[in-house]
Each structure stands twice: as C-alpha cells, then as structure tokens.
Simulated scan of single mutants.
Amino acid sequence: MGVKYQKSAANFVAYLEKENNETALASCEHFFSQYEDSVSSNEVSTRIDANTSNLHKNHPKFYTITINPSQKELAHLTKHSSNLKDYVRELMKHYAASFNREIYGRKVTVDDLVYFAKIEHKRTFKRTDKAVLENRPIVAEIKQLKQEIKKIESGELTGNIARYRLKIKELEESIPYRQNGQIIVQGMEKEGIQTHVHIIMSRKDATNKHSISPGSKQIASEVFLNGKLIKVGFHRDGFVAKAELCFDTMFQYRRNYAEHYQARKTFIKDPHLYFSNIYKLSVQEKRKAFEIIRPLREKRIIPAISITKAQLALKVFKRLKKGLNHAIQSASIEL
C-alpha cells in the first residue's frame, strides 16, 4: 500500500493560525504570497486544495518549507516581519530556479508557484525535542512520587514521606535541561527571539497542469513521461546555499565562518579541517566562532576549549557530530 497524504491543506493552515488565536487583531500576522500581503486562511486552504489536478491519494498535495533564522541573524534585522517578507519573496525566486524542470519550454519561475507564507514569533518545546525527551522520564518519576505522597497522606499507602521528598529533591537536581530555572517540558515557550517562517506550496504549478516537486531525490536528470523526455530534479544543496547568500546580500550580514552552510558540510566530512579553518581566522572572528558553538560546551557535548590552543582532541569529534550540526546552522531550510 502506498503512503496516504492529507486530502486537504486545511489542518496545516489551521495550525499556522495558532498564534493569531492568542494575539490581538492589530498584531496578527497574515498569510502572504509573492504579490499579496494579506490572504485569509480560508483562501489559502481553498487555493491549495483546488490546485491538485490528477494527483492520486499516494501523492503529496503540497509541500512546506520552514525558514529558521538564527537569533544572531534575527538580531541583525531591523524589522523582523517586513524584512522576512522581503526575504521570502526573493528566496522563492531562487527556489523556483532550483528546479531542473521546464514548463512550456522554459525554466520554472516564481510566477509558476502557488505558495503562501506565514511569519510566527513564538516557538514551544515539542515532545520530540532533546530537552523534553531527556527530562520526561525524570519528570514522570517525580510526578509518580508526588502522587504516592498524597496517597500516604490520605492513608491509602504507608511510607516515609520525608524519604519520598528527599528522593524528589534529588531527582529535581538531576534534571538535565532547564530554562530560566524552570524544568523544560513539552509546550513550554522557548526563550529569546524565535521568529521564523512557514511556507506552504502546491505541488502543481499555477496552471494546475504540471507537477513540480522539491521532494525529488534526483538533482538533475531526464526521464520519459507519457512518451516525452522531460527534465526532473531539484538542486536542494544549491538552494540552501542560495538562501544563505540571499540573506547576507539583502541585509549586509557579515557571516562568521562557523555560520556558513559550507562550513557545516566541511565539519560533517572532515572535522579536523573544520577546526583548522577556525584557527586560521583572526582573533576576533575566532572568538565569534567559538561563541557560536558555545551552547555545545554548556551541554557538555564538547569540552571547554581555549581559542588560543592549537591542538584539538580528536576523541571529541564523535560527540561533536551529534550536536554541532545544529549549533552552527545559519538560516535553516527544511523541506
């Protein structure tokens, strides 16, 4: 049996309206497209759902992109919402150009896309976040102990309440992840600047005749379809690199080596070369690079390393690979 995808975009669109449900009307962020500044959620669902000609139940009807600027990048922007709107519209031109696809004998352009974007300013910890996953068993044990204390107090159980409370205190002190002193649990709002963008786009082009899929595993090739030789593929790697360059160019952002997409790729392929490149930076840029990866030192993924040291312990590289990929991300593009 094939995978069954959602018949409608309505549920995802409704999910993206969650912040507006808690925000005063004047402060609401509306959906926007390449040429429209305010599109209602109903219209977004209707237009995406209507653009699904000849798609079967085992075909995705739409795709989503999440744009996650780092807090450092967001701090550089002067007007988050308007800046990111401009950025998305420029970025989607690069997105269209990343398809190895022709429509009516020409390359795909942004005018062929049916997409809508929504800016959000908050994030909450999800059940799949590392902090939530690692805190959960301890939190559950604490909850169980508190319930048992209540039963002892009511006479349902017998036991030493003082010992129970001592155990609870020990467990609370062992909690690995906190935020502002509070134990991190699912649903807790994340601190700091959390502005990000969700983009939903139809799989079909604006004429509802041609399928354009960023989910293709092929980069650039040709296949026979209905007796015709057509180009297929999506340059995902190139698109992510363009997204970074687009941000830097538009907002005159000076990106540190550790923030570069290419640097992240270098680390994955050759950690020694990655750190060698860092140590070749100027003192100021080197310091910034280690500030960027500091969260990993705080989480004990890597040891504290002085930026003046010339040697690196190779034994930390395996642990680094588990977490550094996230810490050195720049504007993250998730397809």
Rank of each mutant, 00 (worst) to 15 (best):
H94S: 12
K169C: 02
S81E: 12
S276V: 07
Y177L: 00
K280S: 01
P69C: 11
D37W: 00
I212C: 06
A50R: 04
N54Y: 12
E134C: 00
A117S: 04
F234W: 13
H198W: 05
E90Q: 14
T52S: 07
I293S: 09
V223M: 06
E291I: 03
Q179F: 00
P271I: 13
I199H: 11
S98V: 01
I292V: 11
S70F: 01
Y261F: 04
Y177G: 00
L281V: 04
L335E: 13
E102F: 01
V88S: 05
T207G: 06
I138C: 01
S202R: 10
S306L: 07
K118S: 03
D86G: 15
P69Q: 11
L171N: 05
L273T: 09
L171E: 09
I292Y: 07
G233H: 05
K321R: 12
Y261C: 00
S8L: 13
K204C: 14
L312F: 15
G215V: 03
T66I: 12
H210D: 10
H76V: 05
R319L: 08
T195P: 04
Y115V: 08
T78V: 09
K151F: 12
K79W: 10
V3K: 13
D111T: 12
S282R: 09
N21I: 13
L296N: 09
K4C: 06
F116R: 02
I48H: 01
I268E: 07
E73C: 06
A162W: 04
G187P: 07
V232P: 07
Y87Q: 11
F247Q: 01
P271A: 10
S332P: 09
K151A: 14
K299T: 14
I307Q: 03
L77T: 08
E120H: 13
I48C: 01
S282E: 08
R294A: 15
N208I: 11
T195E: 09
K18I: 09
F251I: 07
N135M: 02
